[in-house]
Design a protein around this nucleic acid. Structure first.
Length: 569
RNA sequence: UGGGAUGUGGCCAAGCGGUAAGGCACCGCCCUUUGGAGGCGGCAUUCGCAGGUUCGAAUCCUGCCAUCCCAGCCA
């Protein structure tokens, strides 16, 4: 009974769905494991742009902290100078901020801890838990053994502590070339977990680090750095993806041996989306091969790409919550992301009219030189958004698709002899179809009912449908970029032997067209979002729009139930 | 053939021994000056499979099957 009541209350409050990490935190609260404290971190490596998968992690980490009055740190995991750069740092900071999260003054870099990490390494050496190994990379690999056979111990494994100390110091001083020496943890070469077979924890790299420059020539490895960084920051719940599950014993080993604050690593399944690839390597490839126009191309699943496409932070946050958190590897339907952006934009985007594929109509009984200003509601979902004036005149454009000479049963747009409503304007009836010498319909002759001004039905008569339009004389021409999935297949990795995801590229993922739009749209500011009625959601491109001459990106189409009906017959 | 994980409707996902939440998608109907939005209804006799324990199992036990991850001086 109590359970039922609790359930009902949760439903009423539309409580977020329970998941195992929330459960762990709730349990920790009960056992007072962390003294009631929750502190998470988002730890990107600055070696690429963030994508929607990272967004899920960001929302999870920051969200969990917010829910529990905790804190979240932003920490760059910058231990591999060869791949990292400041450009990536800046883009990541911008993206996390844009998503709406705040890390206060807790912006950290693993590289901030290099000195402490070095000291911890010295400590491990002194404890006899780490040693300098002179084996070459190939030898280390050979000594590691295989999945089914245990490895062999390095001949340097039992080097005296003093010698290790001296060698490690010399490594730091740049006395050795790259690949000549590494520092290894001394754990167990027979472990069935390869990560525990005396893992390398420091390697020599003569590379410029984006923050420390050439101060260091030895760099700590991820496994050694991450756990200690979490510990230093007193992270309670260190959330990462499934592939690190095998690394947890090493994470725990380092913290236990050093006897320091022991954060808990928790793994969840990364996000996958249909019709898209999520690996940084593949995304980099798309950028470098110019398949797309940069990391922020609106077809990219990057946060900057989605932003440019017109997605909102709220939609992405909602999406992150709706997909759930579990340990099951899954692929989320892109339709859910579309649902989230439509739901948000439906409530917030101003409406406007745009004709993408124009068909001219001459309203024969409308005065030649009359021009009217008709009232149009800016957002039926939010009347406070007010209204605007739209010019009307004798010649207008409607969508080619909104007319059919021989309409099928359930088509209730314009057809010979039929009457439709021009949104916010008049009822018109089609009297004549004009074709060119090829039989192509090039113009329609219609009459209008002056009594239907504004679109109201003067005598209560019903019209089949309402269509959008623009005044030919007043409309403006703008560039529209119609985006579609970058890949043709739900699973871009579904290709025959020897193939590649690039074989599954959608050749029509970007179609640029010129459209006729109502004049008010010329004032659109970069990044401003609109719903072009009956067409879709569009966003003025942040980079290619010019003052008074916007370029629009299609964020998503509107749901199109006519397409479904038409598709069935 | 080693180790680690995961299997609940088309896609996600709750469920924690008392008789299958919710969302997306889909299908009806209603409503509508966006075939948008909204409203209402439908959509797993069954939880990878097979046994077992129990009055009772998606939940516990045993076995099997499938899928994913691991042999970077990447993270």
């Amino acid at each position: 009974m109590n359970k039922e009541i609790e359930k009902k209350q949760n439903e009423g409050a539309s409580a977020p769905t329970q998941h195992f990490i929330r459960q762990i935190i709730a349990d920790d609260y009960k056992t007072n494991k962390w003294g009631g404290r929750v502190q998470t971190r988002f730890p990107p490596e600055p070696n690429g742009y963030l994508h929607i998968g990272h967004a899920k992690s960001i929302c999870l980490n920051f969200g969990l902290a917010i829910e529990n009055n905790g804190l979240t740190n932003l920490r760059f995991d910058d231990t591999n100078p060869e791949k990292e750069s400041d450009e990536y740092v800046r883009s990541i900071i911008e993206d996390v901020k844009w998503l709406g999260f705040d890390w206060g003054d807790r912006l950290y870099y693993a590289s901030d801890y290099f000195e402490q990490l070095y000291d911890f390494a010295v400590q491990l050496i002194k404890m006899g838990k780490a040693f300098v190994c002179d084996l070459s990379p190939q030898e280390i690999k050979d000594y590691r053994g295989t999945l089914t056979e245990s490895g062999k111990e390095s001949p340097y494994r039992y080097r005296p502590v003093e010698e290790n100390l001296e060698l490690f110091e010399q490594m730091r001083q740049g006395k050795f070339p790259e690949e000549s020496h590494v520092l290894r943890a001394k754990i167990d070469m027979a472990s069935p977990n390869l990560n525990m077979r005396d893992p390398v924890i420091y390697r020599i790299k003569y590379a410029q680090h984006h923050r420390t420059g050439d101060k260091w020539c030895i760099y700590p490895m991820y496994d050694y750095t991450h756990c200690l960084s979490d510990s230093i920051e007193r992270i309670t719940h260190s959330i990462c993806t499934l592939e690190f599950e095998d690394h947890r014993p090493l994470y725990d080993w380092v913290l236990e041996e050093l006897d320091v604050f022991h954060s808990q690593q928790i793994e969840f399944a990364r996000l996958n989306l249909t019709y898209t690839v999520m690996s940084k390597r593949k995304l980099l490839e798309l950028v470098e091969s110019k398949v797309v126009n940069g990391w922020n191309d609106p077809r990219m699943p990057t946060i900057s790409g989605l932003r440019r496409r017109g997605f909102t932070p709220a939609a992405i946050r909602n999406f992150s919550e709706l997909v759930g958190v579990s340990k099951k590897e899954s692929v989320v339907d892109y339709a859910l992301l579309e649902y989230c952006i439509r739901e948000d934009l439906n409530k917030t985007a101003q409406r406007a009219m745009a004709v993408l594929n124009p068909l001219k109509i001459v309203i024969t009984n409308y005065p030649d030189d009359l021009e009217e200003e008709l009232d149009a509601i800016n957002n039926p979902e939010n009347l406070e958004a007010g209204s605007r004036k739209i010019p009307f005149s004798k010649e207008i454009y409607i969508e080619k698709d909104d007319f059919m000479e021989n309409p099928p049963k359930r088509f209730y747009r314009l057809a010979p002899g039929r009457e439709v409503r021009l949104r916010y304007a008049y009822f018109i009836t089609c009297n004549e179809v004009i074709k060119d010498e090829n039989g192509e319909i090039i113009e329609l002759r219609c009459t209008y009912d002056p009594a239907s001004r504004g679109g109201a039905s003067p005598d209560g008569r019903r019209v089949m449908g309402t269509i959008h339009w623009v005044s030919a004389r007043h409309s403006k021409k703008v560039e529209l970029r119609l985006y579609d999935h970058l890949f043709l297949k739900e699973d871009p990795y579904d290709f025959p032997e020897g193939g590649d995801v690039l074989d599954n590229l959608n050749p029509n993922s970007l179609v640029k067209i010129a459209a006729f739009v109502e004049p008010s749209l010329m004032k659109a500011k970069p990044t401003e979002r609109f719903q072009f009625e009956r067409v879709g959601y569009f966003c003025a491109d942040e980079y290619d729009s010019n003052e008074g001459q916007p370029v629009f990106n299609r964020t998503a189409t509107l749901r199109d139930s006519w397409a479904k009906i038409a598709g069935k017959s």
